[in-house]
Measured scan of single mutants.
Amino acid sequence: VTLFVALYDYEAITEDDLSFHKGEKFQILNSSEGDWWEARSLTTGETGYIPSNYVAPVD
């Protein structure tokens, strides 16, 4: 499982989006939707859509 880490803070715009803070880690559930990925936060356990350009793979 490839994990991703937030590079910036993000505040949800719609109820389907997931708010997060810089440094938060995610498991990507679906990355086939283009620039918005469905993800689960490993910090909160919540799922929602995140902007793919706000995250990077964890080394």
Rank of each mutant, 00 (worst) to 15 (best):
L18T: 02
L42Q: 07
L7I: 10
E33D: 15
V55T: 04
A6V: 01
I13G: 11
V1Q: 14
A6W: 01
S32F: 10
E46W: 08
G34E: 12
V55C: 05
D9Q: 04
F26D: 00
A12H: 06
I50A: 01
W37Q: 03
E24M: 06
R40D: 01
K22M: 08
F26A: 00
D16E: 11
N30R: 07
Y10T: 01
L18H: 02
D59I: 12
D16H: 15
T43D: 10
F20V: 04
L29C: 08
N30I: 06
L3W: 09
P51N: 09
A12Q: 05
P51Q: 06
I50W: 01
F26G: 00
S31L: 10
E33M: 15
H21S: 12
Y54Q: 05
L3G: 04
T44R: 04
V5R: 04
I28R: 04
G45K: 05
F26T: 00
E24G: 02
V1I: 13
D35Y: 15
T44F: 02
P57R: 08
T2G: 12
V58N: 06
L7D: 02
G48R: 02
T47Q: 10
I28T: 02
E33Q: 14
A6T: 03
G45M: 08
A39K: 00
S52K: 14
E24S: 04
T43W: 11
W37D: 01
E24Q: 06
A56G: 09
P57T: 05
N53T: 11
G48H: 03
S19F: 03
T43Q: 10
W37T: 03
S31N: 13
S41F: 03
E15M: 11
E24Y: 05
D17M: 15
A56L: 08
G34C: 11
W37Y: 09
V55D: 01
G45D: 06
V55P: 01
P57K: 08
A56C: 09
T2R: 07
L3D: 06
S32G: 11
W36G: 03
D9W: 04
T43M: 10
A56T: 11
R40I: 12
D16K: 15
K22A: 11
S32K: 11
E46A: 13
Y54W: 06
S52Y: 08
K25D: 02
T2W: 09
L29M: 08
A56R: 10
Y10K: 03
K25F: 15
I28M: 04
G34L: 13
A12G: 12
E38Q: 14
I13S: 12
F4A: 10
D16P: 06
S32H: 11
G45L: 07
N53C: 12
S31A: 13
K22H: 06
G23N: 05
I28G: 01
S19G: 07
D59R: 09
D16R: 15
E46G: 08
V5G: 03
E11L: 10
A6N: 00
Q27M: 14
G34V: 14
Q27S: 08
T43R: 13
V55M: 09
G34W: 11
W37A: 03
E15L: 11
F20H: 01
D59Q: 13
A12R: 07
D59E: 11
E15K: 14
Y8I: 06
T2H: 12
N30V: 07
V55N: 00
D9P: 06
D17Y: 15
V58I: 13
T43A: 10
L29Y: 06
L29I: 11
Y49T: 07
F20E: 00
P51Y: 07
W36F: 10
N53F: 09
S19K: 04
K22V: 10
G48T: 01
E38R: 09
E46K: 15
V1F: 13
S41G: 03
W37H: 04
F4Y: 15
L42A: 05
R40F: 08
S19M: 03
T44P: 01
D16I: 14
P51H: 08
F4S: 04
D17A: 15
T44Y: 03
E38D: 04
F4I: 04
P51R: 08
N30Y: 06
S19P: 05
H21L: 11
V58H: 07
Q27P: 00
V58R: 03
P51F: 06
F26S: 00
T43P: 02
S52C: 09
Y8K: 08
F4W: 15
W36R: 15
Q27I: 15
Y8R: 07
L18W: 04
A6G: 04
H21C: 12
W36T: 06
L18R: 02
Y49F: 12
S52I: 07
K22Y: 06
L18C: 02
A12I: 01
E11N: 11
S31K: 12
G45Y: 07
S32D: 11
V1R: 08
K22F: 05
T14S: 15
T43N: 09
V1P: 13
F4E: 01
E38V: 15
Y10Q: 02
E15A: 14
L7T: 04
S52N: 06
G34K: 15
K22E: 07
F26Q: 00
A39Y: 01
G45C: 09
E24I: 02
Y8M: 10
H21R: 14
I13A: 12
G23E: 04
Y8Q: 09
V5E: 10
V5T: 06
A39G: 05
V1E: 15
S31V: 10
W36M: 11
D17Q: 15
T43F: 10
D59Y: 13
S32V: 10
I13P: 08
E33I: 11
V1L: 13
L18S: 01
I50M: 02
I13Y: 09
D9G: 05
G48F: 03
S41N: 14
I28L: 06
E24L: 01
K25G: 04
E46M: 14
Y54S: 11
E24C: 06
T14P: 03
E33P: 10
A56M: 10
V55W: 01
T44N: 06
E24F: 03
Q27V: 15
D9A: 06
H21E: 08
V58W: 13
E15N: 12
S32R: 10
T44H: 04
G48P: 00
D17I: 13
V1N: 14
Y54F: 11
S52V: 09
E33H: 14
E46C: 12
I28Q: 02
G48C: 02
A39E: 00
N53V: 09
D17L: 12
A6I: 01
L3C: 09
Y10P: 00
D35L: 14
E15I: 11
V5P: 00
D9C: 08
S19Y: 03
L42K: 04
A56E: 12
V58K: 04
Y49L: 13
I50H: 00
G23H: 04
T44A: 03
G34F: 09
T44K: 03
S19Q: 04
A56Y: 08
I28W: 02
V55H: 01
A56K: 10
F26C: 01
E38F: 15
D59A: 12
T2N: 12
S41L: 07
W36V: 08
S52G: 07
A39F: 03
A39Q: 00
D9M: 04
N30G: 10
E33V: 12
E11W: 10
V58Q: 07
S19H: 07
L7R: 03
E46S: 10
F26M: 06
F20T: 03
G45F: 08
G34M: 12
E11D: 11
P57F: 06
D35E: 13
D59S: 13
V1D: 14
T47L: 08
L18F: 07
E11V: 14
Y49Q: 09
N30W: 07
E33W: 12
T2M: 12
S19L: 02
Y10I: 01
S52R: 13
G48V: 02
L18V: 05
S31P: 10
H21N: 11
G48N: 01
L7S: 03
I13H: 12
T47I: 14
T14M: 12
A56I: 12
E11Y: 11
E33C: 12
Y49S: 06
L18Y: 04
K22P: 04
E15R: 10
V58A: 10
V58G: 05
Y8S: 07
T43C: 12
F4R: 04
L42D: 04
W36Y: 11
I13C: 12
L29H: 05
D16T: 15
G34S: 14
Y10F: 11
E46L: 14
V1H: 14
P51T: 02
V55S: 01
K25L: 15
D59T: 12
F4Q: 04
